[in-house]
Design a protein around this nucleic acid. Structure first.
Lengths: 191, 191
DNA sequence: CCCTGGGTATACTGATCGGTGAACCCACCA
DNA sequence: TGGTGGGTTCACCGATCAGTATACCCAGGG
């Protein structure tokens, strides 16, 4: 018997609709009826596939996380040298935010779902931890001094740029500049 | 005839309950019935005072903004010298986040209320713009080079530290250190 | 003394919330 | 040929949502 979590055409349609609606309108504000209607499937099928709204929310975030990690990893891999690779996530951020005007889906989810037992919390924390570890690994690979502290600083910059995205200020370019300066100052060939 | 917006004992109780519940549990997740019950007043009185939930939300954010600005301004005023004053908001942030584990109430509100016409948007934007202007003014007063860019960078750092507050990483100390380094490097007596 | 106004108490509206029950339809496969 | 299982249709559940109606209570002030 195939697990209900196996890929099915209906499952993909539901996730696509959930991602669009949840991100644009907020998780609490969007009901399962709306998602069912928007994806052209039945509420019954939705519950057969995901079991509850909470698990659907977690699946939406996990899918978004997967897409985002792919973009970041590709951008890192395309970097010219190990030093440029450290700030590659900021290049990916420019691409990502072009279609994400409402800030970070994971921070937003934590804002709406205060219960730490909600499955969305694990997904959100995993995402931020992955980025922090990525920064640390890239900084170490580039020979940067104090990779731990540098990684924390880069994470804060990254989240700050994302958090200010819904505001009418332009912060991304300035943030990326600062990130590159930090890495330059920490890498071994620094003057 | 006194305007319904005048101070009244009931109004204060409602705002106190709203602030606690909205911040802790989220705006959409908290109903007006819960606020009425929690503040010991009647839903009828709540609507007589605020007119609608949207306006109550705006009033909650405005009140929180007022309290936060007072703290920040006091911290700035207590600074030893103009250079230290530039990063004083990061000292205030340490005090503020001690009782605010769920991140920035304004960013959270924008996450939950995507409609730009919602009165909460204006309050949230005003808050961030006030901080940006404060940073710029303090940087200029301290004689820092490039006060505009510096202010943007400090704002991003500030929001990044706030946004990562719900996460199990400790970012505030490292962020404040970085902020001080940025100001030190930009102020005229820099080496 | 009485009246006005802020507040209370209670009941109610129609809509929507997350979630379920039961019967059915149909393509694929043994 | 006859299941089997993913999907549909539609009705339904109790709870809660934002917001309103009506009637009452009571302190302050002319």
């Amino acid at each position: 018997m195939p697990a209900p979590h196996a890929a099915s055409p209906a499952r993909g349609r539901i996730l696509a609709a959930a991602e669009e609606l949840f991100y644009d309108q907020g998780i609490t504000a969007v009901g399962v009826d709306l998602i069912a209607e928007h994806s052209g499937i039945t509420k019954r099928t939705l519950y057969n596939q995901f079991g509850s709204k909470a698990q659907l929310v977690a699946a939406y975030l996990a899918e978004r996380d997967r897409r985002w990690r792919t973009l970041v990893q590709e951008t890192v891999d395309r970097s010219d040298d190990p030093v440029a690779a450290v700030t590659a996530p900021f290049d990916a951020l420019r691409t990502w935010t072009a279609t994400s005007p409402r800030g970070c889906a994971f921070i937003n989810a934590l804002a709406e779902l205060p219960d730490p037992a909600h499955p969305a919390h694990r997904v959100a924390e995993d995402q931020k931890r992955w980025l922090l570890d990525l920064f640390r690994g890239l900084a170490a690979a580039a020979g940067c001094a104090g990779p731990d502290a540098l990684a924390t600083r880069l994470l804060v910059l990254h989240e700050g740029a994302l958090a200010t995205r819904p505001l009418p200020f332009d912060t991304l370019a300035e943030t990326a500049d600062l990130a590159r300066e930090l890495v330059s100052a920490a890498e071994p060939s620094a003057v």
